[in-house]
Amino acid sequence: MKKLIQPIIFIAAMFSLVSCASSILEEPSTDKKEVFEYAWKTIDERYSFFELKNIDWDAVYSRFEPGISNSMTDEQFFDSLAVMVDVLKDGHTGVTSPFNSHFYIGFFTRGLENYDHRLIVDNYYHSWGNRKGSFYHTALAENQVGYIAYSDFSNSFTDEDLDYLLTKYKDTKGIIIDIRNNFGGSIDNVFKLTKRFAKEKTLLYRSRTKTGPGHNEFSEPVETWIEPADSSKVSYYGKVCLLTNRKVYSAATMLTLSMRELPNVTVVGDTTGGGLGLPIGVELPNGWQIHFAGNQILGVDGSPSYEMGVPPDIQVDMKKEDMENGVDTIIETAIKAITSN
């Protein structure tokens, strides 16, 4: 009997040890004060643009904390968090819950819309919709200029798509790439596009990430270079105009920051919306999530200010009377820049 007990004790020990997991597990909290504290502190320690935007985050705590209590409904609490993160005025900032998602979209209200899709369809495409992958395209100015519109970096494209377009417009005086109203998406597209217009290895930008809770604790900047596309792919070294407006955000702003470093590229239109801090996030104790910018993309000059938008080489605002006459002054300026000697 004694011998039988030994295996039984061993097996019982195995099963009882399985219950030990609770020693490292913590129950979630729905206490709204606790959730608020966690959200505020996480942003305080990890958000990457407090200094650039001159935000007093302690004052934000003082403003919002007294209003937080467990008597609030989830909707009210959600709204409080949403208003709090909106103080950052950052399109990469938001709150997500099972019943609602909030993110800041006010970044594009800093300037005019500077884009009218209907106007382009009526007066430049002439209702002629050429589409290759995610690109719409047409020839302009009596085939002297190729026009390629790319309005969503979330839609990918293939190397074959670019090969086709750059071959089609290879004999033009220049190409217009219209990324107005492009809110961004995958940054892989930045490199896939930029290298087709780069004749030599080029420094595009620098980046640095938070390394600690201090508002200015960052890693040493890392340089990002681009190599020209390999010879099996079609490249274009003629004049290129990149059209931008305030709704060019995130990865699309990153494309603008990158393309402007190429000597054959001119940025035309309005300052972009910015959004150069890659978004990161955390899960709050009640299961909701907040996201915000967690690093900085710096210009070649080392400045983080492009977070607020990359300025164009040629600033153009679309005037109401021009639009009423079916003229997109940003496209027209680009055509002029390409066709003039």
Partner: peptide, 15 residues
């Protein structure tokens, strides 16, 4: 993972 949960080379080609 580094402090913020993103790597320092995430903004590079093939990050």
């Amino acid at each position: 993972q580094p402090y913020s949960g993103i790597t320092k080379n995430i903004a590079q080609e093939g990050g």
